[in-house]
Each structure stands twice: as C-alpha cells, then as structure tokens.
Amino acid sequence: MKPTPILKPRQSVGVQIVQNQSVLVLPALLICTVFIFIPAFLTIFGSFYAFGLTSQNWEPVGFGNYVRAWNDDVFWIALRNNIIIVLGSIVLQVGIGTVLAAVLDRGISFGQTFFRVIIFMPMVISAVAVALIWLIILDPNIGILNAIVKSVGLSPPKLGWLGDPSISIWMVLVVAAWQYTGFMMVLILAGLQAIPNHLYEAAALDGARGFRAFWSITLPSLRNVLVVAILITTIGGFKVFDLIFVLTNGGPANATQVLGTYIYLQAFTLTNMGYANAVAVVLLAIAVFLGWLQLKVSRRS
C-alpha cells in the first residue's frame, strides 16, 4: 500500500504574521505604564510639592512633606498600627491557618472538603460587606457580641468594641483573621499536599509519627510555603484599607489609623495632596521591597 500524497508542500514561503514578537508585549506594557508606572512616578514627584485636590498651583517644598511626616504623630501611629496588624495577622492567620491545614491534611479522616469550603468562604466576600456585618455584630446597642458577653455574666466595654481606643485595633485583627485565615489555610494545605507520601512512610519506618513527623518532615518541607504566606500577609497588612475604612475610618482618635486610611484622609478629606504623596511614598517603598522579596522567594521554589 502506498498512500497518494494529498498534502503537497506549499510553494509560498510562510509569512510570519508577527515579525517582531515584542509587539505582543506592547499592550500589557502600555496599560501598566499608564496606570501603574506613571502614577508611581508622579507619587514620588508630587511628594516634593504642596498642592490641593483641584489646584493648578504646585508649590515646591523640597523635603518639606517628609519632614512633616517625621514630626507627625499620626503618621507614626499609622505606621505602628500597620506593624501591629502585620505581626498580629502573622500570628493569627498564618498560625491558625497552619494548624487548621495540618489537621485537615492528615489529622482528620473525613469531612476535609466540607471544612475547607466553610473556612475559606469569607475570602470571596468583599471586605466592605465583611466590615459592615462585623460593624453590626460589634455594635454596643444591638450587637450579638454584647449579647453573648452579657449572657455569660461579663460586662462588655462601656465605649463599645470599636469605640474604645485600647480595644479597637485588636477587633480589627479579629475581623481580618475571620476573613483571611481560611486563605492562609488553603495556601498551606496546598503546600502540605505537595509533600510526597513516601517521606511520611520513610519517617514511619524510622519510628517518627504524629507530632514528631509534623516537626521533622512537615515543617521543613513547608518552609518555602510558610515564607510566602508570611510575605503575603505582611504585604496585605501594609496595604490594608477597605476593612478599616468601613469599620472605624481610622478612629477612634486615630487609634486604628493605618497608612492606607491616612493617605486617603490627607488626600481626599483634608486635600493635602502633596503630603499624602509623601506618606504614599513610604508605603510604596515598603511594598516594593516586600514584593521584590516575594518574587525572589517564590522563584526559588
């Protein structure tokens, strides 16, 4: 048998539709330049001027805005609050997330999907809705937290959970943990499930089971995932805006002010655009450093 050639070689030389491959990168580059790189540059540029929301008059002030930030107590409170949120979120979200992930991965024998779905669920709800729900739960008059606390015979804080400056930041941490712990759990669970089972089998033959196996097999294998989880939480902790804006708007008396809400306050409420830019540059520098760190870590894995 010899099939007759159906497919004759075409006579024309194939024309490459795209002569220069970099053309395909241009749209992405253009969009990012217009909406990311130029604004980033203008933020830095604008931080050396004083100007209002609509004013055409840009007054050069040199490092004046940075000096102002240095002497601004609220700026330092905001930065401190960001750090509190970062550290608290690492402890709560990554900590509880790791424990939950470990339990779901090897601790319990059925119902993993069920629990995973429930615990992850808040992640898909907008932070605004989350904040509004919790705003009412924590409300001193109608909130159920008060009702629960009263029903066990304790007295809730007089100024309210969010109204008391010494408590409010911790409440923010609780709400953030409510929303994002499931995300961390899922992230870490994916890392756990990537650990090959034969490692555990080898460990079992060596006599390591249970907590011992978790300590000597699971945690070392999870190192990279944990570092990424901590970095994501850290970046999120510095960028936080929605949750606090709706829950407390930085109050009471700046007790929950963070860089995000402070930039917004200075820029759009007090219309100190130049000063807002200077605070934004601080946030930008932190975020760029952390983002660079994250890419470096994840590329290694």
Binding site: I36, F37, P39, A40, L42, T43, G46, I235, F238, K239, F241, L259, G260, I263, Y264, A267, M273, A276, N277, A280, V281, L283, L284, A287, V288, L290, G291, W292, L295
Partner: peptide, 9 residues
C-alpha cells in the same frame, strides 16, 4: 509590587 493604595493621588 506597586499597590494601588500607594498611588491613588
């Protein structure tokens, strides 16, 4: 790495 929070102005 650039968060929109930092460049909103």
């Amino acid at each position: 790495a650039v968060p929109n929070t930092a460049v909103i102005v």
